[in-house]
């Protein structure tokens, strides 16, 4: 027992003495020398999953997401430009001290992870969602989502990948994008969502969640 306490104290002193850092396995989001990859594993994994495949839909999946999109969003969070409530509550603080280099490392890491298939919805809803995604709703001026987000919803550059993303997260973002200006690069999404009924939104997000192009 005493030995255990002394061992702890010794470990404490040793780690203080060694300059307090352990670059390979650090969870210090304020140290510019910790690599993006290390932060991804040690910190971001706790919510987004170690390979970017978050279990809870409260946290967006990052696996296989477009690198340029990830970089853009992380900079929006860091600069307090993406101001939706969850963004500020969860992501502002985590990114506040990240360097551009760390952001690039984080984006590279998550973009290279393999997306794991998500829950598939019921076939009728999926078919309706697929139609909207691929063709839009011309009568209502809704352009095809695929035009920007890619044929299978894989995204391109700063157009985010949607394939396999949690439906709950996408639904939340679609409301934010249509009803607010809280996402700085979201202006082109606004008119599109306005033409969609809530049933359409459920259909398209249900379809996208189940897409697994891998």
């Amino acid at each position: 027992m005493k030995t255990a306490v002394y061992t702890m104290l010794a470990l404490a002193i040793a780690s203080l003495g060694s300059g307090c850092v352990n670059l390979e396995r650090s969870r210090d989001i304020g140290n510019p020398n910790v690599s993006g990859r290390t932060l991804a594993l040690q910190v971001c994994s706790s919510c987004h999953g170690v390979d970017g495949n978050s279990t809870s839909p409260a946290f967006p999946k990052l696996a296989g997401q477009q690198e340029a999109y990830l970089i853009a969003q992380l900079k929006f969070f860091r600069g307090h430009n993406r101001i939706d409530p969850a963004g500020s509550e969860y992501m502002w603080g985590i990114t506040r001290k990240l360097t551009d280099e760390q952001i690039e490392g984080l984006a590279r890491y998550f973009s290279q992870q393999k997306d794991a298939p998500n829950v598939a919805g019921d076939p009728a809803t999926v078919a309706a969602g697929k139609a909207i995604f691929e063709n839009g709703i011309p009568d209502k001026g809704v352009a095809a989502c695929a035009g920007c987000h890619g044929a299978m919803g894989m995204g391109k550059d700063t157009f985010p990948r949607l394939a396999g993303q949690h439906a709950n997260y996408m639904m939340k973002q679609l409301h934010i994008l249509s009803e607010t200006n809280q996402r700085p690069a979201g202006a082109m999404m606004k008119p599109l969502v306005h033409g969609l009924t809530s049933a359409d939104l459920v259909a398209v997000t249900t379809y996208l969640q189940g897409v697994s192009p891998n």
């Binding site: 969870r27 210090d28 040690q42």
Partner: peptide, 8 residues
Amino acid sequence: TGYTMGAR
């Protein structure tokens, strides 16, 4: 993780 996540 020992209250170590974050920045001091």
